[in-house]
């Protein structure tokens, strides 16, 4: 009874997939393709929003730069993207002229649909860019010489529903950021009050500031710093305590040992020097005895 030979023709037709760090590979792979589509959609939204702000050149530039950054896996692209975005938000026509200053922006600049959409789109684009970069270029920092190779996140680790989950998080973050900005622009400081901060009325805040009062930009800076500082402090405390709870016995022993050592190292160094002196003296004596 003969066994039919394996058909090499069938195997030969299955060409290996293109490498993931090539443009064709990125487009072919479904995981990267989905991120690309999400990123392009965000860029398209940014283009439309900039266009509605009379900044057609800015929108085009941002879309082109963002798309190129994703496709060519350029890690510096987001920085340039943010700088260009900042420039065209201040100068929508691209021509640096004298901008108009008014308190209207501060008073009414909350929860505007265009702003929310822009923040959301920028966030989605940046996240897509970085995620694509981690998948196609490098995801972990270089450690030692022998590990100096690219550690890319394999596409089989990209789970279904990863993009929708991120979009939900992005939506929440955008809303929270709006609230934070609302807080930063509506808080006034009163050093004489029992609690120095309070939500101020619009007229109180944007009316004439008395001499000695903090200016509005100082106030915003203070509030933003305060939110950031105390938020991070709280988080550090929580995570620090959690970390202490997880500490292993050797880590605990090392922590105690370090505290002890830092307090007593001067005395210990002195003792060791005396020991060295003693050893040297004994050796000298032994040598002298041998020679005699």
């Amino acid at each position: 009874m003969s066994v039919a030979p394996a058909t090499p023709e069938v195997e030969a037709t299955e060409a290996p997939p293109p490498p993931i760090n090539s443009m064709r590979g990125m487009v072919t792979d479904p995981a990267v393709r989905n991120y690309l589509i999400a990123g392009f959609a965000a860029l398209a939204m940014i283009f439309l929003l900039m266009l509605s702000n009379n900044s057609d050149i800015g929108g085009l530039l941002l879309a082109l730069l963002g798309a190129a950054g994703m496709l060519f896996r350029k890690p510096a692209a987001p920085s340039f993207f943010l700088l260009i975005l900042l420039y065209f938000l201040v100068f929508p026509f691209g021509v640096p002229d004298e901008p108009i200053r008014s308190s209207f922006e501060l008073r009414k600049g909350h929860f505007r649909v265009a702003d929310v959409l822009l923040a959301f789109s920028v966030l989605v684009y940046l996240a897509c860019h970085y995620r694509i970069y981690v998948i196609t270029a490098n995801g972990l920092p270089y450690e030692m010489r022998r590990y100096n190779r690219h550690a890319r996140r394999p596409t089989y680790l990209v789970r279904t529903g990863e993009i929708p989950r991120f979009l939900q998080i992005a939506g929440v973050v955008v809303i929270v950021a709006q609230f934070a900005w609302l807080l930063a622009t509506n808080v006034d400081a009163d050093p004489e009050a029992s609690f120095p901060f309070h939500i101020a009325e619009e007229s109180e805040l944007y009316g004439r500031r008395e001499r000695g009062e903090m200016s509005l930009w100082q106030l915003r800076l203070l509030v933003l710093f305060g939110i950031g500082f105390f938020g991070i402090l709280l988080a550090r405390l929580v995570f620090g305590y959690w970390r202490l709870r997880l500490m292993t016995a050797p880590e605990g022993a090392l922590a105690v040992q370090e505290a002890d050592w830092s307090e007593t190292h001067r005395e210990r160094v002195r003792i060791e020097k005396w020991r060295e002196w003693q050893k040297a003296r004994e050796k000298k004596k032994a040598d002298a005895k041998e020679n005699s």
């Binding site: 922006e105 600049g109 923040a119 973050v173 929270v176 933003l224």
Partner: peptide, 25 residues
Amino acid sequence: GATVLAEITVVPAIVFATLVLWFLF
């Protein structure tokens, strides 16, 4: 954006506040 540009446009401050908040998250 929150100090120098806020009286011109608040959009940069809002966008970058979103990004910082996302990073902290």
